[in-house]
Design a protein around this nucleic acid. Structure first.
Lengths: 147, 147
DNA sequence: GTTGAAACTACCGACTA
DNA sequence: TAGTCGGTAGTTTCAAC
C-alpha cells in the first residue's frame, strides 16, 4: 500500500472502466504492472468489488433520511433485522442515547413513515428520531489521499 | 426503467466486471441487447459511473463518525467548504437545530478531533455534535428492487 | 517491472420482429 | 423502438524475460 497503490485506487474510484494501459500511464507503469498491482489490491481486500454508482432518484429513492434508533436492549446482534428492510442503505451501531443510526432512502415521506413503523417492529426498538435531508451537497468514496 | 433495467442495475451493483454476455443471460437477453440497455442507463444518468468499493480501514480511515454541524447562518452555499476537507465523505443539508450532517472517516479519534476543529473554521459554524460509530452492520448501494 | 502474444470482450454495423 | 447476429478493434491476462 504505497503511494502508487493509493493513486491507482483514486483513479479507479473516479472511473473503473479505464484500461490498464491508461491506468499504468497515469502512474508511470506498464499495463502489466498496473494490472498486477490492482489484482493484489483485490486479493488483499483493499478493493472489495467493482460496482456502479446510481442516481437514487431514478430508482424511486429520492427521499433521504437519517434515523436514530433507540432501544431498550443491546442491539449488537440485530444486523439482519435492519438488512431485511430494503430501504435501509446503511446501519451503524453508535454510542449515546440512540444505539443504531440508519441511512434510509424512500420514494416519498409516506414511505419513510412506513419504514419507521417497521423499525418499531424490530425486537427491542423503543423509539426513532428521523432527520430528513433537504439537499445533498455531495457523496463520494473515502479518499485514499490526503487527510 | 422497467423491471429488466432494475435487474441489470442490481446485477451491476453486485459486480460491474461481468461480461455483457453473462448479464444478458441473467435477464434473458442477448449480449448486444444488454449492452444497449446499459448504455442507455448511463446516457440517462441512471448509472452515474463505474467505481470500486474500498475497505476504509485499509486506506487509513478506520474511524467513522457522523457530525451534526450547527450554524448561525444559512449554509446552503457552503458545499465547497465541506468538500475541501478530505475526511468528509458526505455532507447533507438537514432540517432541525443542526443545519448540516456530515459523514467523516479518519484514521484515529485524534484526527477526528482535528476535523471538528476545521469544521469550526467554516464561516457560520457555531457548533458540532459528533457521534462515533462503534460497528458498521452494513453499507450497501440503494436497492433498485423492493421497498 | 517489462514486453509480447493469445483469448476474450466490448463495440458497432446491418438486419429483423 | 427494441432485439439478434456477426466481425473487428481493443482489452485482459498470462507467459517468458
Amino acid at each position: 500500500m504505497d503511494a502508487t497503490d493509493r493513486e491507482l485506487v483514486a483513479l479507479l474510484q473516479e472511473d473503473a472502466t479505464q484500461a490498464y494501459a491508461a491506468l499504468g500511464k497515469a502512474v508511470g507503469l506498464s499495463a502489466g504492472a498496473a494490472h498486477e498491482r490492482v489484482r493484489k489490491l483485490r486479493e488483499r481486500g483493499v478493493i472489495r468489488r467493482t460496482t456502479i454508482e446510481v442516481d437514487p432518484a431514478a430508482l424511486g429513492r429520492g427521499v433521504l433520511a437519517f434515523v436514530m434508533v433507540e432501544s431498550s436492549v443491546w442491539m449488537g446482534d440485530s444486523a439482519a433485522a435492519f438488512a431485511a428492510i430494503a430501504e435501509i442503505q446503511e446501519a451503524h451501531v453508535i454510542a449515546g442515547t440512540a444505539s443504531v443510526l440508519v441511512k434510509v432512502r424512500t420514494s416519498t415521506t409516506e414511505q419513510l413513515q412506513y419504514v419507521l413503523r417497521r423499525l418499531y417492529e424490530i425486537e427491542g426498538v423503543s423509539g426513532t428520531q428521523a432527520t430528513v435531508s433537504l439537499e445533498t451537497f455531495f457523496e463520494r468514496p473515502a479518499s485514499p489521499l490526503g487527510g
